[in-house]
Design a protein around this nucleic acid. Structure first.
Lengths: 335, 335
DNA sequence: CTGTTAGCGCCTTCAT
DNA sequence: ATGAAGGCGCTAACAG
């Protein structure tokens, strides 16, 4: 394990010259820099992370809290963790996974030991205890998701309210007057996972504004069968369906409709809203308002790094505008 | 941010006493220890990670390489990453996610900067470049998965060969003489992801040993339709089906069989082998030989920590024995 | 443009 | 059972 001293000796300069030549934090004559770089390369020199952390008072590490609930969609979870990691690396940060029983303890530890320079919080509930902790911590924290009380917090998320309005408007514009929503399973709602709630209430409000009939169903996990039956019972003239749910339930909803004799888009128009999954392999391609993990996570990490590197810690909430992808699954209702 | 000095002053002792009282690495009189602990608690003292790393020459961090291929099942990936993280925490290690374009560079960096004390390698290909790197690195590395050449490496994995034999034997014992295998998509095989290959060749060998007919199909991603048709075409008297594939293809295989008029287990007996997913919500419960992420990852982390903490670095390959879960999807063939 | 040097906070050996 | 003190390797003033 080579150290700065080794490199300094090999290059015939002082250790501070080595440090500066490598960090570029002050100007070095071309010749010396070359010699230093060459010596470093020959010795396979890499600065010891611990020493650098201690001296610079910075770890270049970002922690990620991603609690695992029983109803967590691992696939979406992973996408977000990955996207955080990618963007972090692009900004010269590594990513520490904080995933165990007690996220509070983990956050406190990461701040208290200065193991990480900041935290990204995923999978936010409306009344998430991590929000209060973040307010108390005096430590950079960015939420991917919006808790009920955002006072003093930095948050980034898809604008789920706008996405819900977009979906409803699209169906109403096409002439639909009876719209169903398949939301998330009851367990998810009960824990007040916040984006389903935001989507739901915006959906309901928009339907009322348009004066149309609507119904909401909470599916079982992995299956849309019961939810579809409930919607059709509640709304016999249903011709539009909005899916704001997991990928397996969404995939299952087409067969479920078929079982009732309904074909998409002939009998029912369908939109997958705030979908982290793709919809073109679903037999019938379904219109989609993407939940873009990359966009959310990149924005969140950018915010966090700005807070760390440039002290930009003002509270703010960034809502990413939804985008509509048309694959032909919305049509004017027959008759 | 309190430091050892603060605690030492508050407790009226020297800093080394604080250090020892907290680490327990030498005996301290009960009274002083109490005072130190109390002072530390009152000051919210937590040792600075960087300083501890530098002095102790250990980071208490484990890195995880988990490359993301286009055909990667994120859900399984996440399970493994999570299980690694859990076990690591139990042994007082944190987990760093190394997930970007260049896993080599990431591994070199984590070793060269001593950011992590060791590495867990996930999603191993038969000719994985990370294996060669690990041999050269003189740094603790444990593979969850078995590369073609395990010389000098520490590896842990489910015994896929044994799992394949177990599945075949079960069907043969029940009287089946025509058995199909749905393996993984071609992209996965082409990259020589190793566990599908190990399963496949063991499956074929065992069928030959029993002298029965068999056929293998490589499904499309997300769909079993074509694969099932191919198997039935190749093996008209097929009565047994082994699934060693992703959860979505597995779920799709039952409807695909039904489309050909085959009912499970009446017409065809089915076993999901080396399945990371559960099978009881699949309409018909399917017998299962689990791919237990927890078992594999816990064993791998234990091995890695033994290598780090106790220098136990001898090469070895640990194969975890498969276990059969009977849900009634295997029956003696009719006729 | 380059060198010297004082820490960063903790662990650990050596005294006592 | 406790204290004193020397690093660990690097960064960033502070001097030229």
């Amino acid at each position: 394990m080579a150290t700065v001293d080794d490199v300094a000796k090999a290059a015939g300069v002082s250790i501070s010259t080595v440090s500066y030549a490598l960090s570029g934090k002050r100007s070095i004559s071309h010749g010396t820099r070359e010699r230093v770089l060459k010596a470093a390369a020959e010795l396979d020199y890499l600065p010891r992370a611990s020493a650098r952390m201690l001296a610079a008072n910075r770890s270049q590490i970002i922690a990620v809290t991603a609690p695992l609930h029983a109803d967590t969609d691992h696939s979406v979870h992973m996408q977000f963790a990955m996207e955080v990691t990618k963007e972090a690396r692009a900004l010269d940060y590594d990513t520490l996974l904080l995933v165990h029983d007690d996220p509070m303890e983990a956050m406190r530890r990461s701040a208290g030991t200065a193991l990480a320079d900041g935290i990204i919080v995923l999978d936010v509930d409306a009344h998430d205890a991590r929000a209060d902790l973040a307010r108390r911590l005096d430590y950079p924290v960015v939420f991917v998701g919006i808790p009920a009380d955002t006072t003093g917090l930095m948050c980034v998320d898809l604008d789920f309210e706008a996405a819900a309005r977009m979906a409803v408007d699209r169906l109403v514009d096409a002439g639909h007057r009876g719209i169903g929503l398949i939301s998330h399973p009851r367990v998810t709602m009960d824990r007040e996972s916040n984006f389903p709630l935001r989507f739901l209430s915006s959906f309901e409000d928009r339907c009322r504004e348009h004066g149309i009939d609507f119904a909401v169903a909470y599916p079982d996990e992995h299956s849309a069968t019961r939810a579809v039956s409930e919607l059709l019972a509640a709304l016999p003239h249903l011709t539009g369906l909005v899916l704001n749910t997991g990928s397996d339930v969404a995939a299952d909803s087409l067969p479920a409709l078929l079982a009732h004799g309904f074909t998409v888009p002939h009998d029912v128009s369908v939109i997958a809203a705030a979908a982290a999954y793709t919809t073109h392999h679903l037999g019938v391609p379904i219109d989609r308002i993407p939940l873009d993990a990359h966009a959310s996570c990149a924005a969140a990490v950018d915010l966090l790094v700005a807070a760390i590197d440039r002290g930009e810690r003002g509270a703010r909430t960034v809502l990413l505008p939804p985008e509509y992808q048309d694959f032909g699954s919305v049509r004017t209702p027959a008759g």
